[in-house]
Design a binder for these strands. Structure first.
Ligand SMILES: [Zn+2]
Length: 279
DNA sequence: CTACCAACCTGCGAGC
DNA sequence: TGCTCGCAGGTTGGTA
């Protein structure tokens, strides 16, 4: 699922659709969705009468700001996605795995669909939001101005495989398995290259590729390989633009060498053995 | 520090 | 057809 570009695509679409609409009620159908069992049962009462006043994103987390001052934080994990349904729309296949719905007074609804039920929501008081991210030691958002070339280079200066560092949300928040593989291909860096031994030039290339790939992902509306959908139910198209992710055995778009698959940080990892040499 | 593993869930495609 | 295995956009918590 959802990495930074998918979450950003979702946030942008939801801002246009759900801000200011009065909440009539809410129902959760997967007990594990809310960490708090009591909240799972009472979410309808907790949200009734409130409105979403803004929606923000930090890495892969969505922050739904409520007029009451509270914030509902959501993480879509692997298969979660939000859908907006209007009053007249009939239930259909794409609603099969809805685990949480927020109903608006106008008859529409915000749905959270999540086949594997890994997604999580938290309803927090204003003062609890900073500590939520502090506890997780979440890094700056990958596209924020704080993540400069110099900053990223310093954060990558560790004795670990560069791909594992890029996936580590305490290093920088938002990069996941697809975009890590794609940006390393673009920067021509082997995924097992140690962060510590990156040259200044290589670190600059990674920074440039990271921003470029994430922006392209957003422009494409994300990657819809399996489950991910935009809130209107349509697909993103970054899967058409990818160079290496899940293309093992197929030709590298740059040099035609067959793409290789290895495992790095317990994740399937795809790269071109000719364009991305170790050291 | 680092690396590795199991858990949390459901479904799909490959191979037999 | 039907079974088993491996694999999947993520994170957390445990071990060595
Ligand atoms: Zn190549």
């Amino acid at each position: 699922m959802p990495e930074l570009p998918e979450v950003e695509t979702t946030v942008r679409a939801l801002r246009k659709k759900i801000l200011g609409r009065k909440i009539k009620g809410a129902v959760a159908t997967a007990p594990q969705l809310f960490h708090d069992k009591k909240l799972f049962r009472n979410i309808g009462r907790a949200l009734r009468g409130d409105k979403f006043s803004a929606i923000d994103r930090h890495g892969k987390y969505l922050l739904f700001r409520l007029r009451s001052g509270r914030t509902m934080i959501a993480h879509m994990k692997l298969t979660g996605h939000f859908l907006v349904k209007d009053k007249k729309q009939k239930a259909n296949d794409i609603h099969k795995h809805v685990r949480f719905r927020t109903d608006f007074a106008d008859g529409g609804a915000l749905l959270f669909s999540d086949l594997r039920k890994f997604g999580r929501c938290w309803l927090l008081a204003p003062n609890e939001v900073p500590e939520f991210f502090d506890d997780r030691k979440l890094g700056h958002d990958a596209l924020s101005k704080e993540v400069s070339e110099v900053y990223l280079r310093a954060k990558l200066r560790r004795n670990r495989a560069v791909k594992s560092l890029l996936l580590d949300q305490t290093v920088v928040a938002g990069i996941g398995n697809i975009y890590a593989d794609e940006l390393l291909w673009m920067a021509k860096i082997h995924p097992l290259h140690k962060g510590l031994s990156l040259s200044e030039h290589e670190a600059v290339e990674i920074h440039k590729a990271m921003r470029d790939i994430l922006h392209r992902g957003i422009k494409a509306g994300g990657t819809s390989i399996r489950d991910y959908r935009k809130p209107d139910g349509s697909s993103g198209y970054f899967q058409m633009l990818r160079a290496v992710y899940q293309r093992a055995g197929q030709p590298c778009p740059r040099c035609k060498t067959p793409i290789k698959r290895i495992v790095v940080a317990q994740r399937g990892t795809h790269y071109c053995p000719k364009c991305q040499r170790k050291n």
